Lab assay of single mutants.
Amino acid sequence: RLTVMSLQESGLKVNQPASFAIRLNGAKGKIDAKVHSPSGAVEECHVSELEPDKYAVRFIPHENGVHTIDVKFNGSHVVGSPFKVRVGEP
């Protein structure tokens, strides 16, 4: 089962990169992540390998409000996905 680490749920800033990590815990497959902005825009997140069992997911929010992040592994949502994060002040 995958572990999502260091996902900041609030206090993110517009046009500043945000990232979190995913540990695969021995699982093999493909991570896919997309961020949905409050206006409905959908953007791919950048996924990069940090070490053999750990990946970083990076995105840049372009507007204030609550964004939804879909994180999928081999086509299925990971536990807790979709995640909600707040950009800007509430």
Rank of each mutant, 00 (worst) to 15 (best):
R1G: 05
R1Q: 15
R1V: 15
R1M: 15
R1A: 01
M5P: 12
S6P: 10
S6H: 14
S6A: 15
L7E: 03
L7C: 08
L7W: 03
Q8S: 10
Q8R: 07
Q8P: 12
Q8Y: 04
E9M: 03
S10P: 03
S10M: 12
S10H: 09
G11Q: 06
L12V: 03
K13F: 06
K13S: 14
V14W: 01
V14G: 01
N15D: 14
N15E: 08
N15I: 00
Q16T: 15
Q16L: 04
Q16F: 04
Q16C: 06
A18Q: 10
S19M: 05
S19Y: 01
S19C: 02
F20M: 02
F20E: 00
A21N: 14
I22K: 00
I22F: 14
I22W: 00
R23G: 06
R23K: 15
L24C: 10
N25S: 15
N25V: 05
N25I: 12
G26T: 03
G26W: 02
A27S: 12
A27K: 12
K28Y: 01
K30R: 12
I31F: 01
I31T: 03
I31E: 00
D32N: 15
D32Y: 05
A33C: 15
A33N: 04
A33S: 10
A33W: 06
V35C: 07
V35F: 15
V35A: 07
V35E: 03
H36Q: 02
H36Y: 08
H36I: 14
S37G: 06
S37P: 05
S37R: 05
S37E: 02
P38R: 03
P38F: 01
P38S: 08
P38D: 00
S39W: 10
G40I: 02
A41Q: 15
A41Y: 09
A41K: 12
A41I: 12
V42G: 10
V42Y: 12
V42D: 04
E43C: 01
E43P: 01
E44G: 09
E44N: 02
E44F: 03
C45F: 02
H46T: 07
H46P: 15
H46N: 13
H46K: 12
H46S: 13
S48G: 11
S48E: 12
E49N: 07
L50C: 13
L50P: 10
L50Y: 04
L50H: 07
E51G: 07
E51K: 05
E51F: 07
P52E: 08
D53G: 08
D53N: 08
D53K: 08
K54T: 13
K54G: 03
K54A: 03
Y55K: 14
Y55A: 12
A56E: 12
A56H: 14
A56T: 14
A56G: 15
A56V: 13
A56W: 05
V57H: 03
V57C: 15
R58C: 13
R58H: 05
F59S: 01
F59H: 06
I60N: 06
I60C: 14
I60A: 03
I60V: 12
P61T: 01
P61W: 00
P61I: 02
H62M: 11
E63R: 06
E63A: 10
E63I: 13
E63H: 12
E63M: 13
N64V: 13
N64Q: 14
N64D: 12
G65A: 06
G65E: 05
G65M: 01
V66D: 14
V66C: 13
V66G: 12
V66K: 15
V66P: 10
H67W: 11
H67S: 12
T68P: 05
T68E: 10
T68G: 13
I69T: 04
D70S: 10
D70L: 09
D70P: 09
D70I: 10
D70A: 06
V71T: 12
V71C: 11
V71Y: 02
F73M: 07
F73G: 03
N74M: 10
N74A: 10
N74V: 07
N74F: 09
N74G: 11
G75C: 05
G75E: 13
G75M: 08
G75K: 13
G75Y: 07
G75L: 10
G75I: 06
G75P: 00
S76G: 11
H77R: 08
H77K: 09
H77E: 13
H77W: 10
V78N: 03
V78F: 03
V78R: 02
G80V: 02
S81H: 06
S81D: 03
P82F: 01
P82D: 01
F83Q: 02
F83S: 06
F83A: 08
F83H: 04
K84A: 09
V87Y: 01
V87E: 01
V87C: 14
E89I: 11
E89L: 11
E89C: 09
P90L: 06
P90F: 07
P90N: 15
P90E: 03
